[in-house]
């Protein structure tokens, strides 16, 4: 499995750390009810198909990446920098 880091180019999966679904980007604001936190931390759509998830180029540029990926075929259709996205 290979991912194309927007900064470093195509690299082997060994260079990356996987965190989880895109949900982790949508942190509830201060004072949000605990159910929001349950949703944020635990509950997942977990699709069998296209999903977006978070990878970290740990052995590379140390950038967090938002990867568009198919969980059934492992096809990767997009990689973007989390930091760029949040701006």
């Amino acid at each position: 499995m290979r991912l194309t880091c927007p900064l470093c180019g195509e690299r082997d999966r060994r260079e990356f750390y996987y965190y989880g679904a895109e949900d982790f980007l949508h942190r509830p604001g201060e004072g949000a009810p605990l159910s929001d936190w349950d949703n944020y931390l635990h509950l997942r759509d977990n699709p069998a198909g296209v999903t977006k998830d978070l990878w970290y180029h740990e052995a590379g540029c140390a950038q967090w990446l938002l990867v568009t990926r198919n969980t059934v075929t492992h096809e990767i259709t997009g990689v973007e920098l989390v930091a760029e996205r949040a701006k």
């Binding site: 980007l25 978070l54 970290y56 950038q63 967090w64 930091a83």
Partner: peptide, 15 residues
């Protein structure tokens, strides 16, 4: 911790 800090900074306070 390094990975955690990178995530927090890039995901929540990139600016």
């Amino acid at each position: 911790v390094m990975r955690h800090l990178d995530f927090v900074q890039q995901a929540f306070c990139a600016d």
